[in-house]
């Protein structure tokens, strides 16, 4: 797998996949997509990067430990649910905030942050698994 062509093309593919994964995640509330699918795409991207440039490069590219990313995702999802405490309603009651930015309206909502949390969890956990297995390339697990 360590061919020149693959090594050269891989960063491009990875970059495209990552952007696409964010897009899929964010549009998920109204069209097919969502945190689970987005996270899986991003994790695949990391796996591809690991295959082409080695797992150390992939880890460096991630900057954070994948499990830490997953943990941050769970934390984000849980705390987005906790925000409803401020409105005096039950856990995970959604809150919507429409930001007027010039011509467009950006809808911010707790379900969106929750979905981003899901995205991070899937990304972190699956890429941890993938990178963990790639580690052994050559030397045994």
């Amino acid at each position: 797998m360590n061919t020149v062509i693959f090594r050269t093309i891989a960063p491009l593919i990875v970059g495209t996949m990552l952007v696409f994964s964010v897009y899929i995640c964010l549009r998920g509330h109204n069209e097919p997509g969502g945190g689970f699918i987005g996270g899986l795409i991003a994790a695949s991207a990391i796996a591809v990067l690991g295959m082409s440039s080695g797992r150390d490069a992939a880890r460096r590219a991630l900057r954070f430990d994948p499990i830490a990313i997953a943990a941050a995702g769970v934390l984000l999802a849980a705390s987005s649910g906790l925000l409803s405490l401020f409105t005096g309603s039950a856990f995970m009651t959604s809150i919507w905030l429409y930001l007027e930015l010039g011509e467009t309206t950006v809808p911010l909502s707790t379900p969106m942050f929750f979905d981003i949390g899901v995205y991070l969890v899937v990304l972190g956990a699956i890429s941890a698994i993938g990178l963990g297995l790639e580690t052994d390339d050559g030397e045994g697990l």
Binding site: H29, N30, G34, A70, G81, M92, S109, M112, V118
Partner: peptide, 27 residues
């Protein structure tokens, strides 16, 4: 719930607590 994708709305809103547990399992 202000979402057109019903499946996603169920996941992140109606049954969000459930999903929270599930992503914990994944982690």
């Amino acid at each position: 719930a202000h979402g057109a994708n019903i499946v996603n709305v169920i996941l992140v809103d109606y049954r969000g607590f459930d999903t929270l547990g599930e992503i914990s399992v994944v982690m």
